[in-house]
Design a protein around this nucleic acid. Structure first.
Lengths: 224, 224
DNA sequence: AGGCAAAACGATGCATCTAAGTTGTATGCA
DNA sequence: TGCATACAACTTAGATGCATCGTTTTGCCT
């Protein structure tokens, strides 16, 4: 049995990431406590963790606001991802482990292909995460790996999942990943770097197009 | 009056950063609660925040361990800092705001010089933070700015303050900062990048030399 | 003396209770 | 009607109590 605060944390995070709690809404400790069936103390702890992750903003005596994602936030996340992945590529090549890493990434890419054939968008998304995480983790810098993981979370919130469901998107991603593996295997740092810029930035562009209409700045109480 | 949890947070963080709580020690909620004169609830919240920042690791029913810093951690922090600052330089130059940023940094540098003349190590350190933060913030990426700030905290823990007290260190830092400002003003991205590598990495090297003997892996109860 | 089991101790996890702050509303007055 | 004020409802901040779990110590047995 998981701890109560862990359950509260996972549940609220899930709701935020899936969009069940939209950006801008106010949620309260008592509300979540009732829904999850625990007392308010563990919920408070979950809220604190989520605030640390940047998903909630706590207003004393008022409630917790689900942080809205702005167009600027998307740019920041995309930009940070490019920075981190480019560093990872350089580090991996510098270490000389790029052939092995490229091999592992290719293996993931193969799995991704089968998911694409089965139109399994969720599986595809998970493997996409693995693909990029593999690269970043191979750089061997814990700090950067952790940040990268949290960026993935935020991107999920921005609706990447929905994006991947668009027709033809699978193929584009696969092709780019394939090229990425090839360039990495060859140790072509600059090549990977420029490709990455395009790959990730393209995702960002598409994101901004797909959404971003319903941004409001004011607070609204969550209506159950 | 600050909130109780805020006080607990600041106090414990201060003790960790100053080394009053060494890495590897176990501290407990009750202990801190008594010392700060509040109940355990706000202390628990402070512990959670500190765990999120990577300064504490919580062991259920056992206590909170002050995370020890290993040589590898130092490398990670140094490496991450170089990555972020290099990005910042490129971004600032790309935006074309580098002349203004360089000007602001030069202003901070001037203040730093007066502190150095007065042998005010604390003031010097604070301004060093400002100097680098100015550059990173100018890149306009919140995510990267936040991470950079947290890295500064960790570096403080690693004993940078003590390092700066070594004779002649002020001058080296000042000279490097001065050159950095010049290169940035000229928009010489690659030049700043390579200088940065040396500047920050040198700090890391020195750090590793100055400390790192007393690393032990086991837990020891804090003896008051 | 050495080993082991059980009790005592100490820590956290969570629920609950009180206090205090904030918001929105209703009321009275100009 | 418009505005200030009082108040009621709701929320969090913090304290406290208890149950549970891990650790240590103690005391008995071999």
């Amino acid at each position: 049995m998981r701890s109560a605060s862990e359950r509260a944390y996972l549940e609220v995070k899930r709701r935020i990431l899936t969009g069940a709690y939209e950006g801008g809404y106010l949620i309260t400790e008592g509300q979540v406590a009732d829904e999850v069936g625990i007392s308010r103390t563990p919920v408070r702890e979950a809220f604190l963790r989520l605030q640390a992750e940047g998903l909630l903003r706590l207003y004393p005596k008022r409630g917790a606001m689900v942080v809205p994602v702005s167009a600027h936030d998307i740019e920041d996340v995309v930009e940070a991802r490019v920075v981190l992945e480019r560093f990872a590529v350089a580090a991996v090549i510098d270490r000389g482990t790029h052939p092995q890493v490229a091999k592992q990434m290719t293996a993931v890419l193969d799995k991704q292909r089968t998911r694409a054939r089965r139109s399994d968008a969720d599986g595809f998304t998970d493997l996409d995460r693995d693909f990029h995480a593999l690269l970043v983790d191979a750089a061997g810098n814990r700090i950067i790996s952790d940040l990268y993981a949290s960026l993935r979370d935020r991107q999920v919130r921005m609706g990447v999942a929905a994006l991947l469901r668009e027709p033809g998107r699978f193929e584009e991603v696969l092709a780019e990943h394939e090229q990425l593996c090839r360039l990495l295997a060859d140790g072509d740092g600059p090549g990977v770097a420029s490709l990455l810029g395009g790959h990730i930035t393209a995702t960002g562009e598409a994101l901004r197009g797909v959404r971003g209409e319903d941004r409001r700045g004011h607070l609204r109480r969550m209506t159950t």
